[in-house]
């Protein structure tokens, strides 16, 4: 019987959880909890069990429990994952070690300090930048965009800001000031948007000592990303954009235009009598 099969029949699981109480502890330690195993349970289910039935002082972030909010990023058996998206059976062990995401400070127990992530995200101006500020303030209609133009950046717009990519990134492990895969990928997401005119502005931000060139393509961010965003690809494409912008080789492209007013609507066909509800 393999270890994975054994875990399927295990009745109990051991959760080794990192604990850190800022008002009391100087450093963190691991605490063991033994919990019952139920088929299909996720790591988050286990943590909720501990919080509800064993120790209500355990602190962790959680919200949607379905991989949408990005709150429950944790280091699970040595790899950063979303706790709600990690079935215990998939880990193949009945001992699960859960720690706070590395490369961030720890506020308490399993709660990482994500402020640096959000600050970097804000720094790259994650919104459409346009020269027609009047239209941006008082929009008359949407900007047009073809399905092909949408596909240029769509993959990168699925980011849930869980911070897992920074926990996986070896550059973030040693450079606290590195912008990080999340914000760099988002910089490309906006630069590649046909409605945007902010490449020059964002180049000035990411083409810095702790910016895009510090990414040396370890690819761990893309491997760890729970949403399939592929930040490593976005960052490499951003490098190309930044280089072309700096060397003035970038083809000048007009940004998307405002959608024309809709043509006069054709009168709708009358609903046949026999389908109309009485």
């Amino acid at each position: 019987m393999t270890e994975k099969e054994k875990s399927l029949t295990a009745e109990e699981l051991t959760f080794r959880v990192q604990r850190y109480e800022p008002t009391r502890d100087e450093k963190s330690h691991l605490q063991e909890f033994v919990i019952p195993f139920t088929k299909g349970m996720t790591v988050l289910d286990g943590l909720n069990y501990i919080k509800e039935k064993i120790d209500n002082t355990l602190a962790f972030r959680t919200s949607c429990r379905m991989g949408i909010c990005g709150s429950c990023g944790m280091l699970i058996n040595g790899l950063p994952k979303l706790a709600c998206h990690t079935p215990v059976e998939e880990l193949g062990k009945d001992v699960v070690e859960i720690k706070s995401l590395p490369n961030y400070g720890i506020i308490k127990d399993l709660i990482p300090d994500l402020i640096p992530l959000f600050e970097s995200h804000k720094a790259i101006k994650p919104y459409i930048l346009r020269s027609d500020s009047e239209e941006m303030e008082e929009p008359t209609a949407e900007y047009t965009q073809s399905p092909q133009e949408l596909e240029e950046y769509l993959q990168f717009s699925y980011c849930v800001k869980c911070g897992i990519c920074l926990a996986a990134c070896p550059t973030s492990a040693t450079d606290v000031l590195f912008l990080g895969p999340q914000s760099l990928a988002q910089a490309y997401r906006y630069c590649a948007d046909s409605r945007d005119e902010g490449v020059r502005e964002r180049t000035a931000i990411v083409d810095s000592g702790h910016g895009v060139w510090l990414c040396h393509l370890a690819g761990a961010c893309s491997e760890a990303c729970p949403k399939g965003v592929d930040p490593a690809l976005a960052i490499q494409l951003l490098k190309r954009t930044v280089l072309a912008q700096t060397l003035r080789l970038r083809k000048k492209k007009e940004p998307s235009l405002v959608a024309p007013p809709p043509a006069e609507e054709k009168p709708k066909l009358p609903v046949p009598e026999f389908t109309a509800k009485r």
């Binding site: 850190y20 450093k27 590395p102 990482p112 070896p170």
Partner: peptide, 12 residues
């Protein structure tokens, strides 16, 4: 201040 938790060179 949050507890430092960087992997550092060991992370490489």
């Amino acid at each position: 201040k949050p507890l430092k938790n960087y992997l550092g060179i060991w992370g490489w």
